[in-house]
Each structure stands twice: as C-alpha cells, then as structure tokens.
Nucleic acid binder design. Structure first.
Lengths: 110, 110
DNA sequence: GGGGATAGTTCGCCACGCGAAGTATCGTGT
DNA sequence: ACACGATACTTCGCGTGGCGAACTATCCCC
C-alpha cells in the first residue's frame, strides 16, 4: 500500500487514464486500478466517488446512469473534451515531475 | 510550477535526500531544491519549515542552532539513524509508485 | 435464506501545503 | 546615513482532499 499523500497527487490522472479508452462506472474503475497495479493500489470507495463527483463538477467527465433488468444501477463516466485536455496536461506534468524527483533524489549533493 | 497535490507526496523524501550528504539549514534546503530542479520546484517558506518541524518531531532529523558573528542565526538539520531508514524506505516506495503510475497511464485499457 | 460480491451515498475528521503577516540581520548602492 | 533587497526563521488560519465509518440496495451461489 502506498501512502495517501503519494496517491493524492495522481488519482485524478489515473482515473482520467482508464477512461481514455471507454466509459466505466465507479466500482469498475476502482477494481481496474487495483488490478492494473498488481494489487498495490487501493482506493476507498469514499475516496473514489468523491473524486469522481469533483471531476464531474469540474466538467472533466460526464456520468450517465444505466439501469438494466438483472443488473445493478451503475453510473458510467466518459471523458469530456475538457477532460481529454486535462488528461494530456496532467500526464505531461506527471512525467516532468517524476523525472525531476528522480533526478533530485538520485544524485549526490555534496 | 507543479501542483500542491503532486508535491505533497514527495517533499519529505526530497528533503531527506538533500540531507543525505551533509547538514543544511532550512533556507538553504529551499534554495537547493529550487536549483536542483532547474527552477521548477518551489516551496513556500511556511511549507518548508512546517515540514522540517514535523520531521524533527518524528525523529527523522535533528536541528542544531548555529550563531556566528557576522552571520544570521541558522538551524542546521542532520539526518538521524531513523531518518536514514525512512529515506531508504520512502525512496523505494517512490520508485515503486512512480513505476506503477507510469505503467497504468502508459498502456491502453481497451 | 444467508453470505459475499457488487454498486453507490453521505458525513465528519484530520493532515498538510499554502498565503499572509511578522521579526531580525546582513550586504550593497548612493 | 539610509533605503532596499536578500537572507533566515516564526506563527496563524484556511481550504483541499483522502479516508474511515456507517448506510442502502441488488445480485449470485450454496
């Protein structure tokens, strides 16, 4: 398990990333992230949903309720145009940031 | 400038890293991090000092006041044994975390 | 029909980066 | 002599946001 502070900086980007290819509902996003990380990454449902609400409020994603017989009700989220822009920007920021941190913690500062 | 949420997860590790080689005072740490990151990384003084106080309270670092004529008073921090352990652990966690994020955001999830 | 997985909601706590304002000392320019 | 900027540190309060806890509800399997 990673620290909350570490996860804080990238949960939005992680969600935006798994929504790039297709619509997914909240529970699915949580399970998928856990699976993609080999079980290393777990988010509480309260965390996950509050992030999704926030992102929808900001216009990055759009939720659509789907109710079918024989299935539980689910809210499927898709990226908006703005969401795609944010995904690109946050991905670039992440790359630059992680490279910078690796640089700073990797070298000797004598 | 990187987002506060992004920085939140690694400021402790960054500080521990620049203290690996020798003792440094707060102001110096701030300037050094800014310099090492090519100006990309800036922390407010209030942020920096509150992190230092927290880390000292946890026993990761130890501050020592130095007052010399012709110089301002400075508090030089050095890593404790525990601090060295934390530095190693956080560095490993960071490596695993950043690799995981790069993995998740880099692949297609179709 | 009981239990576990699925699916989502709401509430309040608390850690922490940050902005703002303050104190104080030193070097430099004019 | 004085102003000004850089240096060096302190304190306070705000807002953000992940998390724990508790809840509702449906579906499948034994």
């Amino acid at each position: 398990m990673f620290s909350a502070d570490l996860k804080r900086g990238s949960i939005e980007l992680l969600i935006l990333s798994v929504l790039r290819d297709r619509a997914r509902h909240g529970y699915e996003i949580g399970k998928l992230l856990e699976e993609l990380s080999g079980g290393q990454l777990e988010f509480r449902v309260s965390t996950l949903y509050s992030v999704l609400y926030r992102m929808e409020k900001r216009g990055w994603i759009k939720g659509r309720w789907v109710e079918r017989k024989g299935e539980r009700r689910r809210c499927y989220y898709t990226l908006t145009g703005k969401g795609r822009e944010v995904e690109v920007r946050q991905r670039q920021e992440w790359k630059a940031f992680s490279a910078m941190v690796n640089q700073v913690i990797g070298v000797s500062h004598a």
